[in-house]
Amino acid sequence: MLSVCDIDVFYDDLHILHGVSLEVGEGELVGVVGANGHGKSTLLKAVCGLVPVASGDILYAGESIRRRSVSELVERGLVYVAEDRRLFPDMTVRENLLLGAFLARGRGHEQTSLKRVFDLYPRLAERQEQLARTLSGGEAQMLALGRGLMSAPALLAIDEPSLGLAPKLVDTMLETIAELKNTGTTILLVEQSLGLIDGIVDRVYRLEEGIISGGAARAAMAMADHR
């Protein structure tokens, strides 16, 4: 479904990603792990068109998307959920969610998506009319993910959902992500440590100083880790 082929990404003069390639198959939950500042967020942003790719190519559903705008990608179901949430602080929870369905693709499923999000996170349903800035860290993460779902994603790129959450909340968050996978959404998930997502991913890549490795099924990866 998604093939990243040998991409290089720069931030000003800094070379962030060096010839990174990865594959995500339809219906898969693929993880990318690596320490902070090694280019994980940049990889997801490059895939979703939020940062420019200097060389290499990205294929989505068999078509090059390297020069597509973010709007076009969202319209085709490629949706990014940021590690720092990026909510609209002075809008209500409901308004934030409805903005997730801003484009025609999401708007078509607005009511069913809204129901799906509220089923997944009943807390958001309770706090519909509250301003996003008043939410707790866990609720904000739920809203970020929920807003992503409102765009009716085919492939959801989730950036460190555990960031700043209490351990118990992290577990619930990852459970819901696994649940999303089971309902048919393809997911590319980034985390700092393999231990967190080991239980839910199909395959894992490792990103170190902008160079990618791994990508085998998770059992093999775990063994490599222990050696």
């Binding site: 931030y11 000003d12 003069d13 800094l14 902070n36 500042g37």
Partner: peptide, 8 residues
């Protein structure tokens, strides 16, 4: 990140 900042 810090390394970015040092570089710039």
């Amino acid at each position: 990140t810090q390394s970015d900042a040092t570089m710039t």
